[in-house]
Design a protein around this nucleic acid. Structure first.
Lengths: 169, 169
DNA sequence: ATTAGCGATGTTATAATGTTTCACTAATTT
DNA sequence: AAATTAGTGAAACATTATAACATCGCTAAT
């Protein structure tokens, strides 16, 4: 079983961002964590882009907002959002993406198109199991998994850049 | 099936480095690629450390050699070594480690101890299969996999830091 | 109400990592 | 030997991330 292929389908992105923010508010309330304006704005910016954003992209966006932000502002917000499972860091890109399974326990993994830079987060119990099994064979205690698969998404394989299939180029 | 648990066992590390270099020379010869002194030295430095080394660690080591090196020297050598499957980049650490399956076709994955920083490279057909299957379900063409598992190695779980079980702290 | 405590933020500076560019040299091919 | 190509040296620069310390604002307990 695998999650829904979000970025490859046209959809009402504004609604999907709003849904993500609503989920985040609920998750933070439940955890007695404070989703402050800066944190919420960073999460919103990340969700508005289907492509992973770098910390300095976020910083620039905050500056456009009129927010007089410095790097620590962004990194602190990102730390918070990561700790609460609301965003993932894509290590191979030095960039951040909204978690499409926020709230679930999961080890996300990512299909990253090297051409259009869209990222699809999947969750696969089979994959989790294979990782856990291989680790156990070494008596290794898994804490955190980073699984990043680079390649070509369906649209880019067919030569058609995925124009119009999502909200942001 | 899973590869041998290299860093967790005592062994003659000088010999294991020499073996890696010999393999590398053969692989490069077969590929008509030039394992120049700088490249070979970088590979040797990486192998001498069982822990992943950063580019600037390597740069410092080259400088100690008397080599008047700048960052591009190191990055170029690392690019070459990666292209020929002799080293892997661990994206979550911004560091590089010797490939223990050089020459094989494989998608390596890594167990990274957050305490002692040892890294164990494994190869698991089951895991490869699960990745490929999940990707195919999305019609995604996999080119490169980065699978990095952070946690605690057996020695660090037991409270015993892995002293003496390998050559380098 | 006052204030101690604490989480969050602002601010400045700096560290760590990675790239571009261009000039030059060594090796390989023709 | 000349032409071509791969590799290197060197300086500058770009990007990503953190350290350190001051301040603000809320809460909660006296």
């Amino acid at each position: 079983m695998v999650s829904t292929p979000l970025p490859y389908r046209p959809h009402n992105h504004a609604a999907c961002v709003e849904q993500a923010l609503a989920d985040a508010r609920r998750i933070c309330t439940d955890a007695s964590a404070r989703l402050t304006p800066t944190r919420e704005r960073v999460l919103e910016l990340i969700w508005q882009s289907h492509k992973p954003l770098g910390a300095y992209d976020l910083l620039a966006a905050l500056t456009l907002d009129g927010h007089n932000a410095a790097p620590p502002t962004v990194y602190r917000a990102l730390d918070f959002l990561q700790q609460h499972g609301l965003v993932h860091r894509i290590a191979s890109l030095n960039a951040f993406t909204g978690c499409t399974h926020a709230g679930d326990h999961h080890t996300g993994f990512f299909l990253i198109c090297r051409q259009c830079h869209n990222v699809l987060e999947l969750a696969s119990p089979d994959l989790d199991g294979a990782v856990e099994q291989a680790a156990q064979a070494q008596k290794f205690a898994v804490e955190k998994s980073t699984i990043e698969i680079a390649g070509l998404c369906p649209a880019c394989q067919s030569g058609t850049p995925p124009e119009g299939t999502h909200c942001h180029e």
